[in-house]
Design a protein around this nucleic acid. Structure first.
Lengths: 219, 219
DNA sequence: CCCCACTGTCACCAATCGGTGAGTAGCGAG
DNA sequence: CTCGCTACTCACCGATTGGTGACAGTGGGG
């Protein structure tokens, strides 16, 4: 009743807006995906639902069920999109750089990852989601993300080998953990463990500390 | 209607349970607080709401409004409780240990923090919450948590001074970030950046890597 | 031309949410 | 015993959730 009244009032002549949704499935699918990604990036997974996505995409939620098979399928589609993260973020000249030692490499990689995460809200939200929930939905997404990350690292690593006597896998995991948490904490609270992370000067300090740590283990 | 039916079916004789809630405000308040903490620890902040807490506490949600002024007040009460975290977790003999260098201290602190977080589900959930949302609710909680942590660190530090030429605050923040993220990732996905974190053997590897990192910066 | 598949819309469902106002039950003071 | 305070419960509110079935408009192929 109410909805009817509102629609009748708003729809017929909304000031020369696009008079009617064009019948273009592809465009609609893209709009839905974009809406989902935007919603996730801007507001996180808290109020992420069918209704919200449909509202933002400007279409009926029924279409989400039809085209993606529901939220799960939509999330999976986002995960598939995540594969492009690598090539969007990789500086292609990485191979041509003068990375003499494994320490050089890891220092550079750490800072690159830090910056990449720092200006990728969607990836951050997914990361946070991954940490807060453990549903099948999230697990799929997480898998896609971690695969993208692994690919990125692998590609950057090239032929450089880690120093012997160090469990590089474990050490790198710890370093990556630090980077991810720093970025997440900064994005939500502006600080981490008492260290403010707002201004670029703050970030310089953090980056310096990170470099020092990497150099400490890898020389 | 439905609720009525269910209540009539379950409440009157649930196998010799306490026949009736005793009129004891203090006990009820404690029950509510415990329910909230348990709910948060077990299922996270996702389905954390008035209804869920009241259901678990076995009382009407109205009481939560009356005694705590709603969810916000309840969360605040949880935050206040967090102050006790320190004395529950601190090995009191810490001052008597042979911590000769700042590196010794930080190594020990790192491992202690790692273990403390590893078996404190509530603290982990709060940490995750802190990272995923930025409401006033969470901010208060976060403040309480970070104060507890700071107190803990301060108490452990004693009179040992960090080495000169190192931004200890920043470096420690990075280390703490790493620890927190490792524990969070492990608790939700069982791994971090490809490093499995399930068995105690896995954790030994992580701890070794962490030690190596700490020693790398602080010698 | 008509028909049918496809795109999109709408109305409705049960369930749950946070929140509130009104009422009941028990205990202690007078 | 009665009164009144307090602990507690209940019934309801509007809003929103995920989900479904029926319908409308359109365009292309027979």
């Amino acid at each position: 009743m109410l909805n009817e009244a509102i629609n009748l009032e708003i729809l017929p002549e909304a000031g020369g807006e696009p008079e009617r949704r064009v019948r273009d499935r592809g465009a609609t699918e893209r709009a839905i995906l974009a809406a989902a990604k935007g919603l996730l990036a801007e507001h996180g997974f808290q109020n992420f639902g069918i209704n919200a996505v449909a509202r933002r995409a400007g279409c009926d939620k029924q279409l989400i069920y039809r085209y993606y098979g529901g939220l799960d399928g939509l999330v999976e589609a986002i995960g598939a999109d995540l594969g492009t993260w690598v090539k969007d973020r990789i500086p292609e000249d990485a191979g041509g750089m003068f990375l003499l030692t494994y320490g050089d490499l890891m220092e550079r990689l750490s800072l690159l990852l830090l910056d990449a995460l720092r200006d990728d809200p969607l990836m951050r939200r997914i990361l946070a989601w991954e940490i807060s929930e453990n549903t099948e939905q999230v697990r799929r997404l997480s898998e896609a993300r971690s695969k993208a990350l692994a690919l990125w690292l692998e590609r950057m690593r090239g032929s450089l080998a880690p120093p012997k006597g160090v469990d590089a896998a474990a050490v790198n995991a710890v370093i990556i953990a630090a980077i991810q948490h720093l970025v997440l904490a900064a994005a939500s609270g502006g600080q981490c463990a008492g260290l403010s992370l707002k201004t670029s000067k703050d970030w310089e300090k953090a980056a310096t500390a990170l470099k020092r740590i990497v150099r400490g283990v890898y020389g």
